[in-house]
Each structure stands twice: as structure tokens, then as C-alpha cells.
Design a protein around this nucleic acid. Structure first.
Lengths: 179, 179
DNA sequence: GATTACATACCTAACGTAGGTATTCAATAA
DNA sequence: TTATTGAATACCTACGTTAGGTATGTAATC
């Protein structure tokens, strides 16, 4: 600790700060793993579908939700982009949803190569029920939290995701600087 | 808003509070999805293995990390429990790690039904390199954060995971009350 | 004619389930 | 006390399922 400068601006201070961050990350990493386990292997989606009598599989529900949140018909490619998956994956799910009558495909009048995917009334109702159930569960889990903590969680989680995404991008492409 | 009581204790206040929570959850859910995508499909694990010249697949690395963090040999069943997976899955990964010389299996002298899995020197070094790389990335991503935010993220993420796990458990088994 | 938007067919990774073998434990018979 | 035997435990092997990706074909557009 230099007597001239605050600790953080000295070389030793920066090193100690980095070490502190690494300690904190070491504590957070298992939490992230655990959270992933709860969300994926806890069959959260499957249980919500059971509770709301919607019987499609997980990625299909994901497509249906995407449509529901967009409030307008979407192209297959647009759905794929928003879900960050490749086209054929969406095509499969759209096929399944169509067979169950939850969506319809119409050729885009503006470009006949493209298909517009739109939820049917039944599809919209199913998505709405499903989402209410899921959101209700999460909201209940947070019911005992102080308002400030709930706000902070949303804020920090969002920033964390963004910063992590940005930082990982720089590992691939070092010409991009992180704002 | 009753003039007699603070809003939160009235029926209308509680309903509004619930609605507020649901709004906040609606904002958080996409973030969780996005975070899951970054962590899983961002091939984070694969890239860290590439960077540290460890070439096993993801679940195998997960087993190796588990061993590394325990600082002592573990049984196959114990690894499975800690990873929240079934035994055969661990067996597969242990087989792969053994073939690459990163771990050894020895019969547990205290119970010859069981196998103790222990990292070799090479395995320990690989796990250490891998973890340093990964933790470094996360720590760098959080480098610009105020110290308070980093602390809060760890705290809230941990509590969120715990509360969510507990709440989901009550959905299966309503006899359990949530502390 | 080149490109775009989608569909179809096939492949892979990360699990899970089913069922088998080797070892231990606990109860009973000799 | 020792031998026996049924049940439980710990693991392994084989196979199925799910959520994605890759490669390639076809129709519409530029």
C-alpha cells in the first residue's frame, strides 16, 4: 500500500483486486452450475406444460413462446435468430406445433420463399396459460425477497449476461474492444 | 390505498405487489435463457479446454473438476451425487478420463465393492490450468464492476438458486414448507 | 445464374433407463 | 462359532431419448 496513492491504482493493489475477483468468481461458478441444473434437469418446462395441459416438447414450447412474445407472425429464420439456433431446428419444431394445431404456416405474401408462422387461437391460449404458470412459480419463489433485492437481481443478471457475452466475444475476435 | 394502513398489508396492496413481482420475473426470464445460451452453446468449456490443451469432452471435464475441488479421491457414486447425475454417466466419463491417463481407479480398501477415483498428476495439472483459465475469463468480465455489485451478484444468485430449488420442491411435495 | 429461405436427412453430445455382476451385510441353520 | 443365504449396495455395459448441429436439396427472388 503506497502512501502516495489509493491502493487500487498501484500494481500491487491491482493484483490484489484481481485475486479478490477470482475468489468471488470461484464462489459464483458452482452457483451458476447449480442454477443450470435446476432449470434444465428440474424439468421446469415439462412440469409447467403438465400443469397447463400443453403437451409438446421443450424446444417446441420455446418456439411457441417466442411467437407469443412477439405479438405478430414471424418467419422461420427470424425465430431461429431470436432463439440463437439454426433454421432446421426451428423447422422441426414448427412441424410438430403445426401437427398439434397450435400454429399455422402461411406463405409470406411479400416473399414467397418465406413462411410466416402464426399461433392459432388454441396456440395463443396455451402459450398464455403456460407462461402465467411459469412466471407465477418464479414470482412465488421471490415472494419473500425485499423489493430492492429483486430489482438488483434483474439488473445484475442482465449486466452479467451482457458483459460475459461481450468478453467472450473478444476472446474470439480481439479486434473488438469492450465498451 | 387505505388511509389507515400501509398499502402492502391491504388486499389490494398484496395483489399489486404480486403483479409487480410478475413484471420483474417477466424481465428476468429472458435473461436467464440468454445466460443459459451463453454458458452452454457458447462452448465455454470447449474453448477453455482448447486454451489449456486439455482434450476431453465436457462432462468428463466436469468430473475432473469435481475431483480437483474435493482434494481427495472420490467414489463413483459420490461424484454422481455431487454432480446430480446418475451413476452410469459418471462411469462413462471416468472411463474416458482413465483412457487419457488423467485419473486412476483403485479399489476402495474399506469396501471392495467401491472404486476410488483419483486424478493423476497430469489430471491435476490439467484441471488446475483449465480452472484458472475459466475463472480468469469470468473475473475479467466482471473487472469493471463496482465491488458492491460483484458481492451482490454472488449473494443474490445463490439465494435465487436456493429459493427456486426449494419452491419447486414444494410443487412436487406440498407437505414440505418453505423456511 | 447466383443467392436466399426453407425443408429433409443424417449425425452427435449428454444425458437417462434397464439389467447384469461383484461385493458386503444381516439373519439364520448347523 | 461357523457356514449359508437372501437382500442391499456399487458399479458397469448396452441401449434409448432429446436437443441440438451439418450437409444437401428445392423453390423463389434478384
Amino acid at each position: 500500500m503506497s502512501p502516495q496513492q489509493p491502493d487500487e491504482t498501484t500494481a500491487r493493489g491491482a493484483a490484489r483486486d484481481q485475486e479478490l475477483r477470482e475468489q468471488q468468481v470461484l464462489a459464483v461458478l458452482p452457483r451458476l452450475t447449480q442454477l443450470g441444473n435446476v432449470l434444465n434437469r428440474g424439468r421446469l418446462v415439462e412440469r409447467a406444460m403438465e400443469a397447463t395441459a400443453v403437451r409438446v416438447d421443450r424446444p417446441a414450447m420455446s418456439v411457441l413462446l417466442m411467437l407469443h412474445m412477439s405479438d405478430q407472425p414471424l418467419r422461420v429464420g427470424e425465430i431461429a435468430t431470436r432463439m440463437q439456433v439454426v433454421g432446421p431446428h426451428v423447422t422441426r419444431q414448427v412441424n410438430a406445433l403445426q401437427q398439434r394445431g397450435l400454429i399455422v404456416r402461411v406463405t409470406d405474401p411479400e416473399d414467397q420463399r418465406a413462411r410466416l408462422v402464426e399461433a392459432t387461437d388454441e396456440g395463443k391460449a396455451a402459450a398464455e396459460r403456460y407462461m402465467r404458470t411459469l412466471v407465477g412459480w418464479f414470482a412465488d419463489a421471490l415472494a419473500g425477497w425485499p423489493e430492492q433485492d429483486r430489482q438488483d437481481l434483474g439488473r445484475l443478471l442482465g449486466r452479467f449476461t451482457d458483459d460475459l457475452t461481450a468478453h467472450l466475444a473478444t476472446l474470439d475476435d480481439p479486434t473488438v474492444s469492450e465498451g
